[in-house]
Design a protein around this nucleic acid. Structure first.
Lengths: 364, 364
DNA sequence: AATCGATGTGAGTCCGGTCTCAATCCTAGG
DNA sequence: CCTAGGATTGAGACCGGACTCACATCGATT
């Protein structure tokens, strides 16, 4: 079908052996560099291999070594730079140890994730890195464990699953950030996240995402500590596409009980929130303060530059891959897990609320 | 090593066959859904498979079908949202046809790319999508062709290689954009790119990247057509890390012959260029006009929003994957290649040059 | 009732490597 | 000169499915 002969049968050890006039076993030994081979044979085999442009079939090799030198990575959305960067950390690390990476995107759908894990297992990857869409329904991850293949989690934890997890401590950074906002005078602090829920938010409800639960707990803790009521009405989940996020934002900014600060749960949300704020003709931080998760480069270019919560995403990718590979190779944990801490980077998007007095009265 | 028994041997057809008290062949037929199998046997086999939690070994299957249902993707930098988005298009399309994607990042190093291609071929991927780091040195891609395995190119063309390529026509969009800048009064239009060269830029020199050559040709054409000299001194290649880009930008903005407009070759460059402009205390477009490739969401959030050249990156990914899969499945090109055209999106970062008169005199 | 084609079925081969095992070759020690 | 023991070597099993082939089985045809 294609221009030249096309389906040239691959050269195999047997072909090389024949060309070098030795047995298949000897050729395999010379090529695989194992067992005992005389210099004479080795030379002839290697020459023949070179001549025939022999390339070992990794599939066949994997089949009886049981190792594929491949790791599977399952993420929600590779289009999100958060994962793009983590992926970079993973592939960089994998390459160093001679591993390849199969990437599966789940669109944050649990069904897709279950499927992805199954397919990767069927493909006999040596291990899996998963950023679980749900922290609660983890039976498919449990199955990975049962299959005996190494698994590490990225970005999010999974309930009741004894697995190495590489994510930052969301509770403490959320607490810290909220405290920062409260100290700046904010009482009406909104939190916008894509996490899906069946019911509307009520404090303490069980959420699918450990990340988001932890962040909410952090917010809660900061409010409790300041002896202030936690404005549960400002927690907006189920923020899906750009339109819905903009609608939510407009809603938050509207009315007498408007939010004075908004925390965007990720970079994608941030884009739409900021856009909606700008479209409303409001200024940051004059009218609304703004805080977002992930320190993307562009956050320095807006006017004002945005105050962000930086997560060591690249390092998380590296750490996850390193740990997984260590497990695959059956080595004991040598280096302790590097501490993956998030940092609040104060730039220009957080200020005092416009009508601080009115609000503090309403709050107290 | 891990909590429970760990290395449980995988369940094979033979195991299922034994449990169902039929021959391995019959079990295989029932499971693989081919050949003739009586209802009785099928039932027993499926029940046994269920009971034993049988999962076919895709490796073994691939080995004698010769199909791995896997495609390899080789890109320069997955961290770059440009590729992140393309990757999304690829994985979405691949999944629909039951293909998995092995991703290799080359860091735009040709050596890494050569290696990546070899490894993927060894892994017996069914086809390859490559965004070649170099449009000139393409012998490794030629080898892919010779191996008979399908190959399509993404984002960049490769000299003298008869392969389906999915990229926008850089020449015309570059021409159009330059013309737009010239008509706005600009004569000193700078172009900043990461492309590596051994020698400093001279018009018409051979570049490693077809993309960049085409863009430069477009710029050239626009200048020629306007009967203006093309300011070759403002073409700045080898813009590597953020620091060097910022240095280049400061340099372009400095002195009597400063640039009045800057075109950033990609999103990463754009970030540093804009940052440098802002740091210099200059305003866009008051002091400098700015134009960049790729329409990332954040470009709408800066003040002013940035004028960009939008490329249908996601669609390019989809088209590339669809074409590759079509080739793999040996089907004839059904739908014609969708036209992948770039669009100039005028927002707020291009205006008239500050001292238009002075410059037009200098230009004419 | 003998024949024929359409199932059903099991034994065994093959894919392309890795690896075991027994046989053969060499060389140094006795 | 003979032999023990390590170095070489080739035959063949094996990994886990897919698939070929020869051999039943069985209802339908004439």
């Amino acid at each position: 079908m294609s221009s030249d002969g096309s389906r040239r049968r691959d050269v195999t050890v047997a072909d090389v052996a024949k060309a070098a006039k030795v047995s298949k076993a000897q050729a395999a030994r010379a090529l695989g560099n194992y067992g005992a081979v005389s210099d004479d044979v080795r030379e002839r085999v290697l020459a023949a291999a070179e001549e025939l442009e022999y390339r070992p079939n990794e599939l066949a090799r994997s089949m009886n070594t049981g190792k594929s030198n491949t790791i599977g990575v399952v993420v929600g959305d590779i289009e999100n730079p958060h994962f793009g960067l983590a992926m970079r950390g993973i592939t960089d690390t994998a390459k160093k140890s001679g591993f390849n990476v199969i990437l599966v995107n789940t669109d944050e759908e649990r069904a897709a994730e279950v499927d992805a894990v199954r397919v990767l297992l069927d493909k006999r990857v040596d291990g899996l890195i998963v950023a679980p869409a749900s922290s609660l329904e983890t039976s498919h991850l449990q199955q990975v464990r049962e299959s005996g293949r190494p698994l590490v989690l990225l970005d999010r934890a999974a309930e009741g699953l004894d697995v190495e997890t590489f994510a930052v401590d969301m509770g403490s950074i959320s607490y810290e950030s909220t405290k920062y906002l409260i100290e700046a005078g904010h009482r009406r602090i909104a939190f916008v996240s894509t996490v899906r829920t069946d019911a509307p938010y009520v404090p303490g409800m069980t959420l699918d995402s450990s990340q988001i639960s932890d962040r909410l707990k952090g917010i809660h803790r900061a409010f409790d500590e300041a002896d202030l009521p936690h404005p549960a009405d400002l927690v907006r989940l189920n923020a899906g596409d750009a339109d819905s996020i903009m609608r939510i934002t407009r809603d938050l900014l509207h009315g007498p009980d408007a939010a004075t600060a908004i925390i965007a749960s990720d970079g994608l949300i941030a884009l739409s929130v900021v856009e909606a704020i700008q479209e409303s003709g409001l200024s940051i931080p004059g009218d609304v303060s703004f805080l977002m998760y992930d320190d993307f480069s562009w956050t320095r270019l807006t006017t004002p530059p945005l105050t962000v919560i930086a997560q060591p995403v690249y390092d998380m990718g590296i750490a996850a891959a390193a740990a997984l590979i260590r497990q695959i190779e059956g080595r004991k944990s040598a280096a302790p897990t590097p501490d993956l801490v998030a940092r609040l980077i104060q730039r220009g998007s957080v200020g005092a609320p416009k009508d601080a007095d009115v609000l503090s009265q309403a709050g107290g």
